[in-house]
């Protein structure tokens, strides 16, 4: 194709239009002309690339810079090296934040994935009311987190909860998880998993629709029980979709602020204060930009580790090679 064979867009008179058309075609194919490096495709990418670099690299450079400084609001007072990091890692509250975040993310993602898969398995063959059911599950995912937080705060309020009223009717003890240092974080994690189940459900349904019916039928003919079909056939075949779902949720859960802020405020006694909430407080309530930047970079580090793990797992995956 194109200029190498003398056919295609370049075969006519060598006008400006055809030259550009040829270059565009070559550029998009990424083929160097005459063995020379072609700048043109990169020029086309440049505006987007600059924008992406600005919104990703600039904040990182900003955060690295501020994390090494003693600050007064946005004013840099002195270079302090790694002192902000040292203080952070020695801070028991930060250690609590880290543990809370890991629990919130790992347990939350596991629950969300499980809920999503379970619902997808239920709904994939369901014909009646399928769209309505899917919409209902999706509503929390698309609803403002402030609204969800207020609703759950009311539902989980030990004094005014309608759930407790119903439990009381059948002589069961009421719930009051938000005032308990042991129960508040699991409650927050479950609420968040419930919120994100719609997202997981959509991905799982897409994944399930890509699994050929014959594969499941073959397993059934071979005498595999439903459970074995799920464990040995469906879940392995859903691996790429599951990984995409898990990594997206992981990053999303690590960075969540609004739900914990409005549902528990990080309490009681910091038992639900996750890293992102602490970051918000340091940055936008206390204006300790040095500490906030150090926490940001710790979060970025955690996200990068997870992205790397994701990449490795995708590469190790064998089913669609």
């Amino acid at each position: 194709m194109s200029s190498a064979t003398g056919s295609g867009p370049s075969s006519g008179p060598d006008t400006v239009a055809t030259r550009w058309s040829r270059r565009l075609g070559e550029g998009l194919l990424g083929r160097p002309r005459g063995g020379r490096f072609d700048l043109f495709p990169y020029l086309l990418m440049l505006p987007g690339l600059l924008l992406v670099m600005f919104v990703t690299l600039y904040p990182i450079v900003f955060a690295v810079n501020y994390s090494l400084m003693r600050t007064q609001v946005f004013k840099q007072l002195a270079f302090v090296g790694l002192a902000n990091y040292a203080r952070l890692f020695a801070d028991p509250r930060f250690q609590t934040n880290l543990v809370n975040s890991l629990f919130f993310v790992l347990v939350g993602v596991a629950l969300t994935w499980t809920f999503g898969l379970a619902l997808a398995l239920l709904l994939r063959r369901q014909r009646w009311g399928n769209a309505i059911l899917k919409t209902i599950v999706l509503i929390p995912w698309v609803t403002n987190q402030v609204v969800l937080a207020l609703m759950w705060k009311w539902l989980l309020n030990g004094e005014f909860s309608p759930i407790n009223y119903l439990l009381g009717l059948v002589n069961l003890p009421g719930l009051n998880p938000l005032i308990s240092t042991a129960q508040a974080l699991p409650a927050l994690t479950i609420v968040n998993a419930w919120r994100a189940t719609g997202f997981s459900l959509l991905l799982m349904l897409a994944g399930l629709s890509a699994i050929p019916v014959e594969v499941e039928e073959a397993a059934e003919i071979d005498g595999a029980s439903r459970w074995k079909q799920l464990w040995y056939v469906i879940i392995p075949l859903l691996k790429p979709v599951s990984l995409a779902c898990i990594i997206t949720l992981t990053i999303s859960f690590f960075n969540i602020i609004v739900l914990p802020m409005d549902l528990t405020g990080g309490g009681p006694l910091n038992s639900t204060e996750v890293l992102s909430l602490r970051l918000y407080r340091e940055g936008f309530q206390y204006y300790n930009m040095g500490s906030a930047s150090a926490i940001t970079l710790v979060l970025v580090g955690l996200d990068l580790i997870l992205a790397w793990a994701y990449y490795k797992l995708i590469r190790a995956e064998t089913y669609y090679r």
Binding site: K153, N157, G158, E159, N176, L178, I179, T264, G265, G267, P268
Partner: peptide, 12 residues
């Protein structure tokens, strides 16, 4: 006073 106040905001 209910123990719930530990989780209640000013507005609530």
């Amino acid at each position: 006073t209910p123990p719930q106040v530990i989780a209640m905001t000013y507005d609530e």
